[in-house]
């Protein structure tokens, strides 16, 4: 449920759905996000520059002088977007992942913490249908949940200076895919050869908030094959 709407500076508002970070809260956020995106596309709402969903909030940025925050707030309050159904049977997006030891940098750490062997860790990762909570920080980087409880683990105490593009990492109940080479503190369990993000394509990002993702295990040989495609 939408708990409150607050101004952020003079050209943004935040719609707050409460403190819980779980799928049902996030689904409410994404319903409103879909509704705002549609309203902008069909020109029912003008002057909107950006809309950014996260775990439990939706931030809307607007063009000062074109629309006032109060008008957006009234627009949201007068709509019953919460009745919108998210497409539940939307196609599951499959992402190839190679768990080869060359890519799975934190196997040992995870085995010690979870008391599972890596084979079990992999099968638990593969059996999960992940929900895309949000995308961002850098272009195209998805935050997926929820992991099987037995795989929950903390961030690295000292983040790595460099994590390769395509690396798949887990922290707490979330899983992410690094879309650019960057520093990072997630436990790395594998790598995908998939290009999740390409600014020059019509669909810039393969994933959108609210999508469902499943990983598919591939061998190192197949990894190279995908890469060259």
């Amino acid at each position: 449920m939408l708990k409150k709407i607050t101004n952020i500076g003079d050209c943004g508002i935040t719609c707050d759905f409460g403190d819980e970070v779980n799928k049902s809260t996030n689904k409410e956020v994404i319903k409103l996000f879909n509704f705002i995106q549609d309203s902008v596309k069909t020109r029912k709402l003008k002057g909107i520059l950006n809309y950014t969903p996260s775990y439990n909030k939706l931030i809307i940025n607007f063009e000062l002088g074109q629309i006032k925050s109060q008008e957006i707030i009234e627009f949201i309050k007068s709509s019953d977007y919460s009745k919108i159904k998210l497409p539940e049977n939307k196609k599951i997006i499959e992402i190839p992942i190679c768990y080869d030891e060359e890519f799975a940098l934190d196997v040992k750490r995870l085995e010690t913490k979870t008391k599972l062997n890596f084979k079990d860790i992999v099968s638990k990762h593969l059996e999960t249908n992940f929900f895309v909570y949000m995308i961002g920080f850098v272009p195209g980087q998805p935050f997926l949940g929820d992991l099987n409880k037995s795989l929950y683990h903390d961030r690295l105490d000292t983040p790595r200076v460099k994590i390769n593009k395509g690396s798949v990492g887990i922290v707490e109940k979330f899983c992410t895919i690094y879309t650019f080479e960057s520093p990072g503190g997630w436990n790395i369990i594998g790598r995908t050869p998939s290009e999740l993000f390409d600014i020059n394509k019509k669909d810039t990002s393969i994933l959108s908030p609210g999508d469902t993702v499943k990983f598919k295990s591939i061998t190192k040989k197949e990894f190279g094959f995908f890469k060259n495609e």
Binding site: F33, Q37, V40, L49, N50, Y51, T52, P53, N61, M134, I135, G136, F137, V138, P139, G140, Q141, T179, F197, I199, T204, S205, S208, P209
Partner: peptide, 13 residues
């Protein structure tokens, strides 16, 4: 003046 409508995909203006 910026690239808008893509922040939900991680692309800043």
């Amino acid at each position: 003046l910026g690239r808008f409508g893509l922040q939900h995909l991680g692309i800043v203006a």
